[in-house]
């Protein structure tokens, strides 16, 4: 075998082992560059974050300069990066190759809880959310979990202010469901927990909502999320989630830096793969 061929083979092996032994994180810097170890002069929080990940994952953490979130998304899709914070616009072109794993819950806010939009089963014309345009809707309460979060979820789906002809806010899920059943509203919007409580009977076989159907079920769309490639091993994905989930308790300085993309961050929150997907 010729020496140059051997050298190429050897370098290829080295590159492969480097990929397997490191985690490459995007840094939005306004210019693209190679991945490298963090400089000694990096911000203290960033150093704390990298050290925390290195010690917990047992692998080198590299920082990779990228022009912007769109460039980070492309690098992620091409396998040149392992993790990046993306927004919905950057995520959309790489949706098939990347997935969200973590968002950040701001202090005093709820998790990204699932929401349901419900209509009467007899309403055969309502087959999707768009069919409710110009109709009336009732919410099951005025607390954030019953009103603000469901409203945001609807807005994310294109059913924001002005979509419904009339909106009503009941005191709870039961009274809101009564409005739907009586015809005073065309649709009922609840969070999934309230819907579960509404429909749960005293016996397992009881379903108090057999006359109703769920038209839409989903979350509010995340504005930003930590995204990894879809082909990342579950082992690494779960460990990344586990490490980040407890970071606000175990490594406060690292958490403050790592979560700084969301104001008043309280903790990392796991998320569904398509948390950034547009409708």
């Amino acid at each position: 075998m010729r020496p140059w061929l051997l050298l190429a083979l050897a370098l290829s092996i080295a590159a492969t082992s480097a990929d397997a032994a490191s985690l490459r994180i995007a840094a939005i810097t306004g210019s693209n560059g190679p991945c490298h170890a963090l400089e000694a002069g990096a911000p203290a929080g960033e150093i704390a974050y990298f050290r925390h990940l290195e010690s917990r994952l047992g692998r080198a953490i590299l920082t990779c300069n990228v022009m912007d979130r769109a460039a980070a998304a492309q690098a992620l899709a091409l396998g040149r990066l392992d993790a990046a914070v993306l927004d919905p616009a950057a995520y959309a072109p790489v949706q098939a190759k990347a997935r969200a794993i973590l968002t950040v819950r701001p202090a005093g806010r709820l998790n990204r809880i699932p929401i349901v939009v419900v209509v009467k089963k007899t309403n055969v014309s309502a087959t999707n959310l768009a069919a409710l345009k110009g109709k009336s809707v009732v919410f099951g309460g005025s607390v954030d979990a019953a009103l603000a979060v469901p409203r945001q979820a609807l807005t994310d789906q294109g059913a924001g202010p002005g979509f419904f002809a009339r909106e009503a806010v009941s005191t709870d899920g039961d009274s809101a469901a009564a409005k739907l059943r009586s015809g005073a509203a065309d649709a009922l919007v609840l969070n999934a927990a309230a819907w579960q409580r509404l429909c749960q009977g005293l016996r397992t076989q009881d379903n108090r909502c057999e006359d109703l159907k769920v038209l839409w079920h989903g979350h509010t769309r995340a504005t930003l999320a930590l995204v990894v490639r879809r082909d990342i091993p579950d082992d690494l994905r779960f460990r990344l989630i586990g490490i980040h989930l407890a970071m606000h308790l175990e490594a406060k300085e690292a958490f403050a830096w790592a979560s700084s993309w969301i104001p008043q961050s309280a903790e990392f929150e796991p998320t569904e793969a398509d948390a950034l997907a547009t409708r």
Binding site: L6, A10, I13, A14, A18, A21, S55
Partner: peptide, 21 residues
């Protein structure tokens, strides 16, 4: 020569990730 090159490459990979274990 092959052995040296492959070992060198492997060391290169490891050296880049001194914290790896």
């Amino acid at each position: 020569t092959s052995l040296v090159l492959i070992c060198a490459a492997a060391l290169c990979g490891c050296g880049q990730h001194a914290v790896s274990r």
